[in-house]
């Protein structure tokens, strides 16, 4: 396997969001940003400092923030409303449902600290249900980029896309390995490695782990195809079916519960279109706990070695 993706230095994906938003502030005068008392955590400070009239502090009141964002959007602005993932999904589900998704307003819901890698704050803040909640809503586009560069590119891209978007990113510093000059195409999966024995569909922080898993598998003579599903909805069905057809074995890897996650989405698609043995690398019906992000990834079976184990297991199930 060629070494295509090199870590150019660890960075947090939320900083990719902050950098993208800052750039949008300079290039698109209709972009406004809202935050619920987590401006620093969301890395929105640069935007807030340079464009104070377009930065709207909402205080600790997320329901009102979502409604206000919808009102800004319907009257012509492009609002980016940010908070922790739990607080812009579970806490405000009905607000998102009525005034963002059903009303099809051009709101960009920006969700930081998603998943278990939020770390030490513990399970109250570690949403692993958000992708499921958001992908159930008609009209909503759901995006979960994998590193700093891709998060920055996705942030810029969603401003050009007219419609409601859920953009998910995280807190910890993780490898930054995708090209800095990439163009982000919503709904277009990216093949990270080419392989024939198993496909690993990964999203978010698990893309890097999957690439590491592919390297380990290669040492055992197993050729793994890693596909970055940065857009959960709309899912790139063609890419999923083509790769599953080629390899005949599938692992899905995500920082989320099995319930409602990307894996279930892919399993459902393949059950209809191309039944294929499949293993989930995701959390099975558990809340998280406090700990360091890397410890938690290991504890909850979301690291490269868990992906390797799942890949070997699914290959053994091939007909």
């Amino acid at each position: 396997m060629k070494e295509i993706f090199e870590n150019t230095g660890n960075k947090d994906t939320r900083s990719g969001f902050g950098a993208g938003l800052h750039e949008l502030g300079k290039t698109n005068s209709e972009v406004v940003a809202l935050c619920a008392d987590l401006t620093g955590s969301l890395k929105m400070d640069a935007f807030a400092a340079e464009f104070p009239e377009r930065f709207i502090q909402c205080g600790i009141a997320e329901a009102n923030m979502i409604g206000t964002a919808a009102g800004l959007a319907v009257s012509g602005k492009i609002p980016f409303a940010g908070s922790f993932a739990e607080f812009v999904t579970g806490r405000v589900y009905d607000q998102v449902r009525q005034t963002v998704a059903y009303s099809e307003t051009n709101v960009k819901i920006c969700a930081s600290h998603a998943g278990i890698t939020l770390g030490e704050d513990g399970a109250t803040h570690q949403t692993m249900e958000d992708l499921g909640l958001m992908r159930m809503l008609p009209n909503l586009t759901v995006i979960n980029p994998c590193d700093y560069n891709q998060t920055k590119a996705a942030t810029i891209a969603i401003a050009e896309h007219h419609g409601p978007v859920y953009l998910r990113f995280g807190r910890p510093s993780v490898p930054n390995f995708t090209p800095a000059d990439q163009k982000f195409e919503i709904g277009k999966a990216i093949r990270m490695t080419e392989g024939n024995d198993v496909t690993i569909f990964a999203t978010g922080h698990l893309v890097w782990e999957s690439i590491q898993a592919a390297k380990i598998l290669e040492e055992d003579g197993i050729s793994a195809e890693v596909i970055n599903i940065h857009t959960i909805k709309p899912l790139d069905k063609t890419a999923v079916i083509e790769s599953a057809t080629k390899t005949g074995a599938v692992v899905t890897a995500e920082e989320h519960l099995i319930a409602g996650g990307m894996g279930e989405l892919i399993a459902g698609l393949l059950a209809n279109e191309r039944p294929t043995p499949l293993e989930f690398v995701a959390v099975d019906d558990l809340f998280g706990q406090s700990g360091e992000p890397s410890e938690l990834m290991k504890e909850y079976g979301l690291d490269a070695s868990s992906i390797v184990t799942a890949a070997k297991r699914v290959i053994s199930r091939k007909a």
Binding site: T68, G71, S75
Partner: peptide
């Protein structure tokens, strides 16, 4: 009321 706040800001 929240929605109206957003429109008033615009």
């Amino acid at each position: 009321l929240s929605v109206a706040c957003g429109a008033a800001l615009t």
